[in-house]
Design a protein around this nucleic acid. Structure first.
Length: 493
DNA sequence: ATAGGGTTAG
């Protein structure tokens, strides 16, 4: 992609837009005029449907288009689940005659390239940022480190963090806490804790550093380790705060230590510890997921007396656990109650209700809520589509699932990794050979869009294709799998 | 993008 645009035909394009009919380039195909207003949706679908990079470049470089960092970021966001298209777009604008990318757009591009595991492009972009004096910033390094960690290269991520000052980005307590958090969120708590112990003196670890590590231990259900770390914190003269207590509370619930959680909450109250909406939401959710609906309800109803109003997240927790452990009808009652009190449900709220209805087989009622969602100007998101696709397919209505998938692909809401996984596994329920062929094509498409299928998915699809005797496609997928493996991938950008 | 609460997945 870079090679293609090595010599950006700057001035030429200017003329092309004004004298469209006269340009020698029209011997191929005329570039469509860009949408009149700078509409991110229209531009994103233009980029998605374009097949000729040269024509697209001409359109996007047209002087009547007024680019801003916000517009560029909005378009990248819309193309997020089609990494190659998004990077192509970023790259075309890199050669715009007058517009220059913002640091935020660079960060997004770096994030996308890293998701493709195209580390060469990642570092090319970092250097370009540097030469334009736009970075790299601490955020840039957080993004890179996160991608390395999630690709199973935690050691590499740590090395990069330790050398970020060599790239002209200074280290700080913030960046230290960030790398610790990234490692913890990817369940590399042991590694985070070791790093913490080595550098806590140098960076002057604070209560946030300790909270991050404690939360890490909680995430792997080792609440006692979390408590140990926090005791150490207190011994060093740092005081826990409300976030610390909420982390521990959640930790108990996560580890299934329900009564310990409740005792801990009572202790918080007894000690006149400030209690906030996060505390209450944690308890409502925690009780609910183990089926203690009555206790969840009591806490939910009682929090107002404690002087704390529920948030949308609290309602979402209550509604979700009612769906799962009680009944959708009661969940919907709470939903209506929330609306009646003037709360605006968000997409999570709608998705929880929609999933609940799908789960009880009430697809049509679920679709009514999708309509209601739209009426509230809350557009169905990728999760909404994933829920509907999953349950349509589960109910044997695979055509309806595929129909929704097609709709997404048109640019409304591009499919993500989950969408592909859901759909691919649905292709095995009818045991039709055409379905298996579709599974193969979906697998190729998902890799093309920067999503890494699990080994299980590869094997499943390969077996399916061999079963129907499609050696050709199977071979293609095998090649794809070996490219996705250990070897760094280089998408020609 | 310096920490804590709601979607998910057999």
């Amino acid at each position: 992609m870079f090679a293609l645009l090595r010599k950006p035909p700057k001035n030429h394009l200017h003329f092309f837009c004004i004298y469209r009919g006269l340009s020698p380039l029209t011997t191929t195909s005329p570039a469509p005029l860009p949408p009149a207003a700078a509409d991110p949706a229209a531009l994103a679908s233009l980029i998605l449907t374009s097949t000729d990079p040269r024509t697209l470049t001409q359109t996007l470089h047209c002087p009547s288009l007024h680019w801003t960092p916000q517009l560029v970021d909005q378009i990248i966001k819309r193309l997020w689940n089609h990494a190659l298209k998004a990077l192509h777009f970023f790259n075309i604008l890199s050669y715009h005659p007058t517009y220059a990318h913002s640091p935020s757009s660079f960060d997004h591009a770096i994030d996308l390239a890293a998701r493709l595991r195209d580390y060469r492009t990642v570092w090319t972009l970092v250097h370009r940022m540097k030469s334009l004096s736009l970075g790299p910033t601490q955020k840039t390094f957080a993004i890179i480190a996160e991608r390395y960690v999630s690709a199973g290269k935690a050691d590499r991520a740590v090395k990069i963090f330790l050398s970020m000052h060599e790239h002209g980005c200074r280290q700080s307590l913030n960046s230290f806490n960030t790398i610790l958090d990234l490692l913890c969120k990817e369940k590399k708590v042991e590694k985070a804790y070791n790093l913490f112990k080595v550098f806590r003196g140098k960076f002057k670890a604070d209560v946030i550093s300790y909270n991050v590590i404690a939360n890490g231990w909680c995430l792997v259900k080792r609440t006692n380790k979390a408590l140990e770390v926090l005791k150490e914190m207190v011994d060093r003269g740092l005081n826990p705060n409300l976030t610390t207590y909420n982390i521990v509370l959640k930790g108990y619930f996560r580890a299934g230590q329900i009564e310990e959680a409740w005792r801990f909450f009572l202790e918080m109250k007894k000690r006149k510890c400030e209690i906030d909406v996060v505390t209450y939401t944690t308890i409502v959710h925690g009780f609910g997921v183990v089926g203690e609906i009555k206790r969840a309800r009591n806490v939910f109803d009682g929090m107002v007396n404690g002087g704390v109003l529920p948030s949308v997240a609290t309602y979402n927790a209550m509604i979700q656990v009612l769906c799962k452990k009680d009944s959708v009808e009661n969940a919907i009652l709470v939903f209506e109650e929330m609306v009646g009190k003037g709360y605006m449900p968000n997409s999570t709220t709608y998705n929880v209700v929609i999933r609940g209805l799908c789960h009880t087989g009430e697809m049509e009622r679920a679709l009514e809520f999708v309509g209601r969602m739209k009426d509230d100007e809350c557009e169905p998101n990728v999760q909404t589509y994933n829920i509907l696709i999953r349950y349509f397919c589960d109910a044997g209505e695979i055509e309806r699932g595929l129909e929704l998938f097609e709709k997404m692909g048109s640019g409304v809401c591009l499919p993500n990794l989950d969408t592909y996984n859901i759909l691919i596994s649905s292709m095995f329920v009818r045991k039709k050979s055409d379905d298996l062929l579709v599974a193969g094509k979906l697998l190729i498409e998902m890799v093309d869009r920067g999503f890494m299928p699990r080994k299980f998915t590869f094997n499943r699809v390969l077996n399916g294709l061999l079963l129907i005797g499609n050696q050709g496609l199977a071979k293609e997928i095998l090649r794809l799998q070996s490219r996705c493996g250990r070897l760094p991938r280089q998408f020609k950008l």
